[in-house]
């Protein structure tokens, strides 16, 4: 492996971690507010105004943009399929993080589903 490839590989793992942090902080911010229906425009507007005043959401946005720009950079350097198949591992990061940090109950069945998806994405993107 060339030095550039190791660098790109590291960047892909790094964006996976950034995506995980983005979702974690967003979910944690959303959890501090009341539940809303996505089809109730009035509720959603109020919800978004409350949400953007939550500091956790800004941390989430920071990680989101960081991952986005690095991702764009990766896409201009390597084969798309390769990048996407490696990106599927962030589903596993999310499942762990949701279980241990957000205290969601990720039982065996949800793990099986998540792993099927990761395997499926690997097959779809690599073939």
């Amino acid at each position: 492996m060339k030095e550039g490839q190791v660098f790109i590989l590291g960047l892909i793992v790094f964006t996976g971690l950034c995506d995980t942090f983005r979702e974690l902080f967003l979910k944690s911010g959303v959890n501090s507010l009341d539940e809303v229906s996505p089809d109730n425009i009035k509720q959603v507007t109020l919800f978004i105004f409350k949400l953007i005043r939550t500091p956790r959401v800004w941390i989430s946005l920071f990680f989101g943009f960081l991952s986005l720009f690095i991702w764009l950079f990766i896409l201009s350097k390597v084969d798309l399929n390769f990048a996407f198949s490696l990106d599927s591992m962030h589903y596993i990061f999310i499942a762990f993080a949701a279980q241990f940090l957000l205290k969601e109950k990720v039982r065996r069945m949800r793990w099986v589903g998540t792993l099927l998806i990761v395997l499926g994405i690997t097959l779809v993107t690599l073939s």
Partner: peptide
């Protein structure tokens, strides 16, 4: 996505979003 997350678990929403593939 934020409004959806107010309704369901993160460990459910993220895998279901793989429907995009």
């Amino acid at each position: 996505w934020s409004t959806i997350l107010s309704k369901i678990d993160l460990s459910v929403a993220v895998p279901i979003a793989s429907f995009s593939y």
